[in-house]
Design a protein around this nucleic acid. Structure first.
Length: 327
DNA sequence: CGGTTTTGACCGGCGC
DNA sequence: GCGCCGGTCAAAACCG
């Protein structure tokens, strides 16, 4: 099995607390055939977008619409999504919307225990323990099993490893990846009290694909308040969380599923990049998408986009028809 | 000079 | 218990 380096990566579907272990990234890649695949299934509750890094690239590096469309979020099995997303949507929303540093419900504390156990107490005290080792030790965990923050992985066709996503990151580590010539980089959000991390690695199967795994939820809006993106100044809005995208291609997000505003922000940002790309490809069509991309209920529930039919029609031009299965 | 990156060492979990 | 491996630390180097 290739890609054993990714075997520990898990995907936590935002609307549930179940875990999908990606035992095989290759399998994950097979599963993530692209957002148009997802478009065709109403079992999937959130959009898949392409965080293509076109904004950072030269014009020569752009103009590959088919490549853009193959990016995707690694996602949980539909069955798991459906099992829990409607049971406790609020809990799952809190899980992601609330910062790990301020847990205020049982569901939060259980889901964010990694951050609580691992991040905070690292550098405090324990001098006596530190004395017998060169480096300060992490405090021992009591018999609790280590739990991870929610993770969301993006597979992105990109020339650059570190994709611009609207947040500022500081690299804190890099490791060689077993069975891969490409290293994995570890980044932390530079904002104080924000424990979000991300890992970036390049697929050795497809060196043009960058796998970015986000862990945790930002406790703040994006520090980048102005982006060269034309639809609405999302990041500059104080009401950013209510102005989020769900995949402007009309991805059929279940109306009853609450998606973390911050996760949506992430998805939306990536999607904006893709939109930008598609605008370049389709001209006025992209304008249309931009103007209709964000239609939401006031309570952050994601509506089904009215762009669905229209988008399908447009995208059918560039996506094989079998990927546009009816719903 | 402050923030970021680099990089070797260390730690903990896990499988055998 | 041991070794492997992913993840993190932290000092030094780098950079604007």
């Amino acid at each position: 099995m290739e890609f054993t380096d990714f075997s520990k990566t898990s995907f936590y579907y935002p609307s549930s607390q179940s875990v999908w272990d990606l035992g095989d990234l290759a399998a994950a890649e097979r599963n993530s055939l692209g957002f148009m695949e997802l478009l065709g299934s109403q079992h999937h509750d959130f959009a898949t977008v392409s965080p293509h890094s076109s904004l950072l690239e030269t014009p020569q590096q752009q103009r590959q619409p088919s490549a853009k469309l193959s990016s995707s979020i690694l996602q949980a099995p539909p069955s798991e999504q459906l099992v829990t997303s409607k049971v406790e949507p609020l809990c799952s929303d809190h899980l992601l919307a609330n910062p790990p540093a301020t847990p205020n419900s049982s569901s939060i504390s259980s889901a964010s225990s990694e951050a609580l156990n691992e991040e905070k107490p690292k550098r405090e005290g324990n001098e006596e323990e530190k004395s017998h080792t060169k480096k300060q030790l992490k405090p021992k965990k009591n018999n609790q099993k280590r739990q991870r923050e929610a993770r969301v992985a993006f597979m992105t066709k990109s020339e650059v490893d570190h994709l611009e996503d609207g947040y500022r990151w500081r690299k804190y580590g890099q490791k060689a990846v077993k069975n891969s010539p490409f290293p994995r980089s570890y980044y932390r959000c530079t904002t104080a009290s924000c424990n979000v991390k991300k890992r970036v690695e390049r697929s050795f199967r497809d060196p043009s694909t960058v796998v970015t795994t986000y862990e945790g939820q930002h406790t703040h809006i994006s520090p980048l308040t102005s982006r060269p993106i034309s639809n609405g100044g999302f990041f500059g809005s104080s009401g950013a969380a209510s102005n989020l995208g769900n995949g402007c291609f009309g991805f059929p997000i279940d109306g009853s599923t609450l998606i973390s505003p911050q996760f949506q922000q992430l998805v939306h940002y990536h999607h904006q990049q893709q939109q930008q790309e598609l605008m370049s490809c389709f001209g006025g069509v992209g304008e249309y998408l931009n103007s209709h991309a964000n239609e939401y209920d006031d309570d952050n529930r994601v509506k089904k986009s009215r762009v669905l039919v229209k988008d399908n029609g447009l995208l059918q031009d560039v996506v094989p028809s079998h990927m546009l299965k009816d719903e």
